[in-house]
Design a protein around this nucleic acid. Sequence first.
DNA 1: ACCTGAACACCGTTCAAGT
DNA 2: ACCTGAACACCGTTCAAGT
Lengths: 241, 241
Amino acid sequence: LTYQTSGVENHLEANERDGLVDSKRGSLSRDLIIETAARLVDREGLEALTMRRLAGELGVKAMSLYNHVPNRTAILYGLVELLLAEIKPVSNRAASWQERLQAAMSNLRRVGLAHPHIFVLMLRPWRATGAQQADRALQNLLAAGFNDEEAGYALRALMSYVIGFGAWETARMVRDPQEIAEAPSVDGIDAVAASHLEAMRSNVVHSPDAAFEFGLRAIIAGLEQSLRTGAGRIDREAAKV
Amino acid sequence: LTYQTSGVENHLEANERDGLVDSKRGSLSRDLIIETAARLVDREGLEALTMRRLAGELGVKAMSLYNHVPNRTAILYGLVELLLAEIKPVSNRAASWQERLQAAMSNLRRVGLAHPHIFVLMLRPWRATGAQQADRALQNLLAAGFNDEEAGYALRALMSYVIGFGAWETARMVRDPQEIAEAPSVDGIDAVAASHLEAMRSNVVHSPDAAFEFGLRAIIAGLEQSLRTGAGRIDREAAKV
DNA sequence: ACCTGAACACCGTTCAAGT
DNA sequence: ACCTGAACACCGTTCAAGT
């Protein structure tokens, strides 16, 4: 929604209208390609992002893209970068470390909800994505009193939760409802159990915000406790013996 | 690794050797297709799972598969079912609810590590997958004193964490290392911050088990606390005012 | 330097034809 | 009932040719 556009695309469209086909030359760029890809994916999903389709969107042939981008994967990586850049930073001075973490993770989820098709790409093992944001969170944890190892574990735990939760909730905005509806239904489970499950599912689906906050609060409370009791440290000492 | 094979595949291969081509007829089945797909995916990854390739593995042409399976997605769903069936169940009588949850989630991660290529499929919004396992965990939480809503939230939180963590850690067993190595490197971040990040990453990568346990312990401790203080309930009351 | 036509080696899926 | 040849409408990517 909020990608910064350079306005080049409108320029392009104008060229197209006036038949100034030659001025396509040089108007393409990595950034324009990725911004266009982001809008396409937000609108129609990842499967719509083919080289031919994206090129068409830019008024150009597929092969032209390879002059600015090595392959499709590089475009996907660019989408992740764009998404991460959209995360609202959390002030380092605000409130407690718990509240800062809470805010940071909620902000991460928020961009996920804004770009559900792109969010799943966070699960790919990109090198060093979101370095700035991750670093802020790490500093926060170190300042709170966690040692290097614990801070790393804690950040990984929080990220795992947020991304896991987000991937799950965005999955059902993203897939065609048909695919879900056609999945085989439960068997080998009695009706009472099934109704419990259904109740749980609908609770979480109907108030995803509450579900998210509940889990996030639990993790942060757990981290706080492990900081107080030094649980991580004790385990490490025990492991050495 | 431990998929139950009906031995039909060996039978098939024997037929192939003896040139008894006609006996292919009727030897195909949904189960055989999915078991073969599982072995193929474990060996070579999800991209290797094409209809043509899978058919070849079965000594048959691609279109034959459509006699037993509606489409490729149904095969993927079958893989998830197989994976879930492999989760070691946790005795309901064992120890505390905390320890049972801990064991259940560790078992879930274990099958993920055994089948890293398949594990990511858990993120798709299948209807009612893992119903039995989810139900056991829910009963466990209800017995511990959580109400319906909290139990649902708690299970979702645990699953989000385990799947998020697992997806992250399996991602780097699964992708070609080349794709990772070729990802653009950090910029706009100073050397000190980068070294902190690198330290964190390598800690988590070198002792993923410790990282996983740390986070899992934190979540369960947090849930325990929210049960004691009734945090969920209080928030709900506050929300009503 | 950058755009592109043609081609390569693939996809999932359909459908009519075979047995 | 089940297997399949041929075809449809696609993919990502390469490479030589154009300007």
